[in-house]
Design a protein around this nucleic acid. Structure first.
Length: 502
DNA sequence: CTGGGGACGGGGCCC
DNA sequence: GGGGCCCCGTCCCCA
């Protein structure tokens, strides 16, 4: 073993997740460690809030467990009983069973109720499956699940830096095809549900009653997310949104976390060959390219079948092992033409070459500091230093300097990094202008403000109060997309105003 | 905080 | 369709 490698070995336990779920289900049935009780028309279902938050977007937001949230404004521990009369007891039982078993067991006659429940609770995959079985297209623009999914988490938004103009088309056709790669969510033989656990007699009722008439907010209560405003369709929903197998221009907008290839494809004009996309049964992500799903699955299972014979380090992919082997062989096949440096990777050489060229094509739109690497710009933008150093302006009229900042194209606000967006949003907030994707208001993050509004009291209500107030006259669609230039102008106006005051 | 190297996961192309 | 190879974007770590 080389000194640098500590012989790290990943040992996958593929059954772990199943066992974990199974034990949680057993706990639910006995009421053990249940910290949340759902009720529907008098029937009580003890459950675990962590599980519900994991499976349901509604509960995730309710408990403030949504990724990127600080949790400070969620209901937190203040609610242990949720009354969900809007979901039928059977449907609720089926959804709970699904949450704990990954299997949806329902009568076909109850399908619609389950669909409704899944939509209300934000259980996307169940809603998709039900729709698919019912033969309904998922074209409801007001579908709260979809709508909520369009709200990018901060982290995801983080990754959608260049994302723009991606077709919002949802690949329902192949995504929800049970015959292909999706997990088997076909109807199981009716076998009588035993999913309804006995009511927990002694279950504390210290919590607040949830609104029985739960419904998702209408659009006016949500920050508008028109397709062109959408940073990236894949956001938050784990890429299940994108996956248009044919978007030719595309992948430019792919710039997000998945990265790769796409941008280059668009730039180099490489024709994107439509390969059968496959949906990961674990994360629902759409994997493009034949034969790529097993490779992706190893990221979930932790399986690392490719082991270095020299140092024992294991890899999930053979090609990564090959590159790794270069460390042992000393092979550095990418020499710099300008200096003696040699590199293991072509992209390392590419990065290195930018040093020689002095090119710094990635410019911070706020402080205008330039970077040679895009990831360094992103890192810079995550910090706040550029806000303090905001002393220089780009030459007027040059704007984003398309030639100088090619990968980022432009810095419309819809692409801004959250921190930066927040900074700008702070300016705009005074104008009562909602910013797409900026979690200024609780309502923006909570797709169920009305439900919560009725359900929550106490300190939490305060934040929701703010949310209510926040869905101001401007609340719906007044400003959806501001360009970099517009921001500049506004900024200048503010500065001018400040100077006048002085 | 920044520069630089490396690791990782995804997509395209090809066989 | 599976897999190899390559490229890419992103993230992490270290100096």
């Amino acid at each position: 073993m080389s000194p640098g490698e500590d012989g790290l070995i990943g040992i996958p336990f593929p059954e772990h997740s199943n066992e974990l779920l199974s034990r949680l289900n057993a706990q639910r049935r006995t009421g053990l460690l249940c910290d949340l009780t759902l009720t529907s028309r008098g029937t009580r279902y003890p459950t675990h809030r962590s599980v519900m938050a994991a499976v349901s977007l509604y509960f995730r937001r309710l408990f403030g467990a949504e990724e990127g949230e600080d949790g400070g404004e969620g209901v937190g521990d203040s609610c242990s009983v949720c009354q969900l009369d809007c979901v039928s007891p059977d449907a609720l039982a089926a959804l709970l069973e699904f949450a704990y078993t990954a299997t949806l067991t329902i009568r076909s006659s109850g399908m619609r109720e389950v669909l409704k429940g899944a939509q209300l609770l934000g259980i996307q995959c169940v809603a998709d499956a039900c729709r698919d079985i019912l033969g309904e297209a998922d074209d409801d623009p007001t579908d709260p699940v979809k709508e909520a999914d369009r709200l990018p988490s901060r982290r995801k938004q983080d990754r959608c830096f260049v994302a723009r103009a991606v077709s919002p088309a949802r690949p329902v056709s192949f995504m929800a095809s049970p015959s292909e790669d999706t997990p088997e969510y076909g109807l199981l033989p009716t076998q009588g549900r035993e999913g309804n656990p006995p009511p927990a007699a002694g279950q504390a009722h210290r919590g607040l009653l949830m609104n029985g008439g739960a419904h998702w907010p209408n659009e006016s209560t949500l920050i508008p997310y028109r397709p062109e405003d959408t940073p990236s369709e894949e956001e938050e929903s784990g890429a299940q949104g994108r996956a248009t197998p044919h978007h030719s221009q595309s992948q430019q907008g792919d710039g997000g976390g998945d990265g790769g290839g796409g941008g280059a494809a668009a730039v180099s004009g490489r024709k994107r060959k439509s390969q059968t996309p496959q949906q990961c049964p674990v994360c629902q992500k759409i994997i493009h390219g034949a034969g790529k799903l097993p490779r992706h699955m190893r990221t979930h299972t932790g399986e690392k079948p490719f082991q270095c014979t020299a140092c024992g380090v294991r890899f999930t992919r053979n090609d990564k092992l090959k590159i790794h082997m270069r460390k042992h062989t000393g092979e550095r096949p990418y020499p710099c033409p300008s200096c003696p440096a040699r590199f293991l990777h072509s992209y390392d050489l590419k990065n290195h070459l930018s040093l020689h060229s002095g090119d710094r094509p990635f410019e911070c739109p706020l402080c205008h500091k330039a970077f040679a690497r895009e990831d360094h710009l992103q890192r810079h933008r995550k910090g706040h230093s550029c806000l303090e150093l905001r002393t220089r302006r780009p030459r007027r009229g040059t704007g984003p300097e398309p030639g100088a900042s090619p990968p980022s194209e432009s810095f419309g606000l819809h692409q801004q990094h959250p921190d930066h967006m927040s900074a700008v949003a702070g300016l705009l907030e005074g104008h009562g202008i909602p910013m797409p994707g900026v979690p200024l208001l609780a309502a923006a993050r909570m797709p169920f403000p009305e439900l919560l509004w009725r359900a929550v009291s106490g300190p939490v209500g305060k934040s929701l109060d703010k949310a209510e107030g926040g869905s101001s006259p401007h609340g719906s669609g007044s400003v959806a997309h501001r360009t970099w230039e517009e921001e500049e102008e506004e900024d200048e106006e503010q500065e001018a105003a400040g100077e006048e005051e002085e």
